[in-house]
């Protein structure tokens, strides 16, 4: 029994151990990996993905899934860039309005997503996947397939200005992560996400309005997708339909690798931080050690399976679907 408990306590730390192990491995192969400048590079590529993954963490904690992030990120990025340019092109002037504007757009898209799921009783998997396609179509309609450039030096300082070696966007994302952690651990809403994910029938029986909570969860996710969109635009200075590309795989993988259970009720935003770092360390490390590119996708897939296997307690699962 003691041994079992010890295993269980250890398993909580497995994602972090995997992260440390990966860093050690890449460092042994190429010592350049272990440098402040490289960690800053990993932070830059992880920042937009972290916001999107934190958003979907809330939904996954409730035992639902949200696959609309690519569409939502694309629409938010494109509208943010259009608004910023239309309002003078600088966040020093009226352009700052584009930031809350983008968050509102994200919230609205999340609300639609949640309502379609809850009110039409369509499984979240299908509802969000479909709305993701709608989002991609919408962003295409808005841009006509073109790219929108952001030249505002103040906004781009998120990428170009560094404090203690890390760009400003890394600190901004850290701030957003703390807010997400506060919501998760210190608000009724956050605790209710766990309740619904852990045992929905009990939550319902104790008088919780599960439908309303789910919609709120999707709205919250939408806001974080919008933050991800803003950081993605800050990173490249370009907003386009393609801005949303690859976020679905990146974020869901990160959440799962970090140890948040897809069945809901266990895990959280710190797990997601570790998961995002694992996925980005793998992406960066494979280039740094010079792994041939036709291996890279395959190795990423295998590492993800290994990480999930290690971080979930198989014995506690009665069935796997």
């Amino acid at each position: 029994m003691n041994r079992f408990l010890a295993m269980d306590a250890l398993r909580k730390w497995v994602p972090l151990l995997v992260l440390v192990g990966l860093c050690l491995f890449f460092t042994v192969v190429n010592p350049n990996f272990l440098s402040l400048r490289n960690f800053a590079r990993i932070a830059i590529s992880a920042t937009p993905a972290l916001m999107v993954a934190v958003g979907v963490t809330f939904v996954i904690l409730m035992g639902s899934i949200d696959l609309s992030m690519e569409g939502t990120v694309a629409v938010c990025a494109v509208l943010f860039a259009l608004a910023l340019n239309a309002l003078g092109g600088s966040i020093a002037g009226w352009g700052w309005v584009a930031i809350p504007g983008a968050l509102l757009v994200g919230a609205a898209l999340g609300a639609v997503n949640g309502m379609v799921h809850v009110m039409l009783r369509i499984p979240s998997f299908m509802a969000s996947l479909s709305l993701g396609f709608v989002g991609i179509g919408l962003s295409l309609l808005i841009t006509g397939g073109n790219r929108i450039l952001i030249d505002d030096p103040l906004f781009r300082s998120l990428l170009t200005v560094r404090v203690w070696g890390f760009p400003l966007m890394a600190y901004a994302a850290l701030g957003c992560l703390l807010v997400a952690w506060f919501i998760q651990d210190h608000t009724t809403m956050g605790r209710n996400f766990y309740a619904v994910g852990g045992a929905e029938d009990l939550a319902r029986a104790s008088g919780l309005d599960v439908g309303r909570l789910r919609i709120i969860g999707f709205v919250l996710a939408g806001v974080f997708y919008a933050l991800g969109a803003i950081f993605a635009v800050a990173r490249l200075g370009i907003a386009e339909t393609e801005t949303g590309r690859n976020f679905m795989f990146m974020s869901i993988t990160s959440v799962v690798v970090g140890g948040t259970a897809l069945r809901g009720g266990a895990g959280g935003v710190w797990n997601t931080l570790v998961g995002v770092l694992i996925v980005n360390v793998i992406g960066n490390g494979m280039v740094v050690i010079g792994l041939a590119d036709y291996f890279q996708d395959g190795v990423l897939g295998l590492l993800v399976i290994a990480a999930v296997y290690l971080s979930t307690n198989r014995q506690s699962l009665s069935f796997v679907k």
């Binding site: 190429n30 400048r37 993605a232 590309r245 992406g283 960066n284 050690i289």
Partner: peptide, 14 residues
Amino acid sequence: TQKANQVMSGFLTR
């Protein structure tokens, strides 16, 4: 674009 960005930063480390 995004993948190129990531690959280039990897190259800079390497």
